[in-house]
Each structure stands twice: as C-alpha cells, then as structure tokens.
Nucleic acid binder design. Sequence first.
DNA 1: TTAAATATGTACCAATTGGTATTTAAAAGA
DNA 2: TCTTTTAAATACCAATTGGTACATATTTAA
Lengths: 214, 214
Amino acid sequence: MNTEHNQPVNAVKRRGRPPAFNQDQALESAMQTFWTFGYEGTSMAALIEAMKMNKPSIYAAFGNKEALFNQVLDKYVSGPSAFVKEALAEPTAYLVVKKFLTQAVALLTQQDTPRGCMIVQGALSCGPEAAMMQKKLMAYRARLEEGLKQRFEIAKQQGDLPAASNIQALAKYVATLHQGISVQASSGASKEALLEMIEIALINWPMTVNHTKP
Amino acid sequence: MNTEHNQPVNAVKRRGRPPAFNQDQALESAMQTFWTFGYEGTSMAALIEAMKMNKPSIYAAFGNKEALFNQVLDKYVSGPSAFVKEALAEPTAYLVVKKFLTQAVALLTQQDTPRGCMIVQGALSCGPEAAMMQKKLMAYRARLEEGLKQRFEIAKQQGDLPAASNIQALAKYVATLHQGISVQASSGASKEALLEMIEIALINWPMTVNHTKP
DNA sequence: TTAAATATGTACCAATTGGTATTTAAAAGA
DNA sequence: TCTTTTAAATACCAATTGGTACATATTTAA
C-alpha cells in the first residue's frame, strides 16, 4: 500500500519500502491530539489512532513521546502561534498589544482547532514524569513575556510609551491576559465575549501625547 | 498502633479498631498532592505516600480517586479559596476587584502551599478519563465569574459603576486576570511582580464621580 | 473469654502505560 | 531472479494505573 504521500515531484528514488504516511500530515495530527489533551493526557494509543500510524513507525519517524512533542511544539510555534512575531512588529506598543490579544482570541477560539493555547496548557499541572515538559513550556512563556518587554523598551525609547512606564509590569500584564484568555477559551468563552473583554483591558493603555490611539 | 488522632475529647466510644489516621489531616495531604500535580497527574501511589494511609483505608474512608478529589475540592473552596466570598463583600466594585486579585496573588504565590490555583489548573488539559473533572472545574470557574457579574450589577444599581458599564465583560476581565495569575504563579512569578501587574490592571477601573479611588 | 465490629496490611487483579523485538511486505539495484 | 534496504504489522515487554479480596490486628460489648 504505497500512496506516496510524501514523495516530492522530483524526489530521488530511495531503496526500500516507501513510507505510507506523510510526515507533515502525521505531525499535524499529533499536534491536534497534544493540543486537545495536553502532554500527559495524550496516550500513545491516542496518537496511533490520530496519526494513523502504528507504534513502531511513530517511534522510527519521530522518536519517543517526548521527542514527538518537541517536534509538535516547533510546528505549533511556527504555525498557529506565528502571529506572535507579526504582532511584535506592529508600529506602536498599543497596536502590538491590541493585535497580539486580538489574534490570540481568534486563534484560541476558532472552530477547526482545539481551544486554548498548547503552550499554556500543554503541561501546566502534571505528574513528575511530565515535569521536564512543564519546565520547557514555562520557558516558552517566559520568552514571550521577555519579547513583549523588549518591544516595550523600544517603544519607551521611541517615546511611544511614557518614560516612567514599568515595562516589566506591562509585559506581565499582557502575558497574564493571554494566559487567562487561554483558560477562558478552553472553558468555552465565545470569541465575541473575549473581544469585549480585551477592549476593557486596553482602555487605559499608557501612551504619550504624540502617540494617540487610532 | 492507635494514636487516636481523630478522637474528639468526649467522643462516643465506637466498637472496632480505631482509625490510625486523622480524617482532616489526611484530606489536607490529599489536597496538597492534587494541588501540586493536578487530578490526572496525581496517582494513587502518590496519595498513599502523602496521606500515609494504605490504599484500602483510603477507599474505605473517602471512596475512589474521583470521590476523594471532590472532597478535596470542597475543602479547597472553604479553605484556601474562602477569600473569594470576603472579597465580594467589599463595599465598592473597585475594592472587590482589588481585594480579590490581591488576595489571589497572596494565596497563589505563598510559600507553604503549591503555586497556582487548583480550580484553574486541576484538570485544564487532560485525557478523556478526567473529562468529568474538567467540566466540574469549568463550572466552578463559571460560578466565580457569575458571582463577580452579579456583584457588579449591584454596584451598577448603587451608582458605584457607570450605568453604561458592560458588567459581563468586566466580570470576564477580572476572571481572566485571575486565571492568568494562576498560570503566572505556577510558572514562578513573584508576589511582588504580580502585585505591580495588578496595579496596572486596576488603573482605569471604571467609576462614577461619587465613588473615587481610595 | 468470646463474639462482633471496624481498621490495617499484604497480596492481588485486569487494564493501560510507554516502548521494542521480530516477522512480513514492498520497493530498488545487481 | 535474488539480494539489499526500508517500512508496516503483529506481538510482545516490564512497569504502572485505579481498584479489591482476604487475612490480620485492635477495639467494645456481651
């Protein structure tokens, strides 16, 4: 049963039986599963069903559960979570935050993907065996918060944020909202309700006189 | 080995071997464990060690894992989480929110208990077997948000909040911050950093002219 | 002293966990 | 055709999961 899923057009012919699965599609299915149930809540049995691969094939192609999750994480960051980089590129701190939170709500409440953020919820409370992943996700979150802080530092230097701004606290404010939004989304909050909520959160965003809200 | 842990001073003498454990202390240990590792991440083996009881004794005293967690939840709500009711009793919406978030930070970052909120993180992402607990905790969170909304409705009627206030969105704002704080706390955020963050979140809390910030 | 009642402790259960050894199938090259 | 190479599929592994049966210990009441 060779369906040649992952053969590029002019692929070099390799010897041996060709894989019956598509690498990227399988990883996508794994992401969907981990995203839904978290690292600990996802069993190999669930992955086997979702990826439509048998266990030895998964281990041969992606390594063990931990290695597979790491590859899923990469895919998540460069895929669903790619909007973060775009948001940080917005011209003002206000627009950065507005775009970041708005896009987060859009992603975390959309119909065709699981609700909630995989990096927030993938291994939040878990047993000792998932402790390494817990730390890894913590580091990812810390990196995002650090990215916001650095962006706000630039905004401060540009006179976009008041010189007296506590950029550390501002970054934590935005990160906290994002993490809360993740919990809200996974608990069933609607996109509309969360967008209204964001409006409130942004009402008093600090700005200097020469940078007004649009 | 009868240490008579749970014999009240003038207890009625019951027949049979007296329990070697204290009901409340054992439940406290169970709470600590579930709080740390979540529902799914807590194994019976971990509970046995923490509660210093053997498995059949646990089952006899508290029922199965699910029943035990339910009793732990009750204890959590009436114990560590009791500040919620106090906060809702504050005289103005602003003070309600300030007290609620400040106390939440205090609880979720204190040294002698696990970090993060058990109701937020106890079963956020989990496998199908914990789905019931996931729903149950979602309901708890929804109840809190509803409590905030009702409190804000009263504030609105009292002229404490502007008549045009979107109390639904305000309640979701506060609930989202609380949930985000839980994630932050479990990720190692300091009490001080979170208190600074709360200040920012409260800067533009809506108020009418006859109710000013203290 | 003995029976009834209740708790503890050991040993066990089937099912599931993550992970592999081994056999079989399908392709390319000689 | 036949060997080599690679993947799929079945069957298995020890360890752990939540949950129990059963024997033993400790108390009170008769």
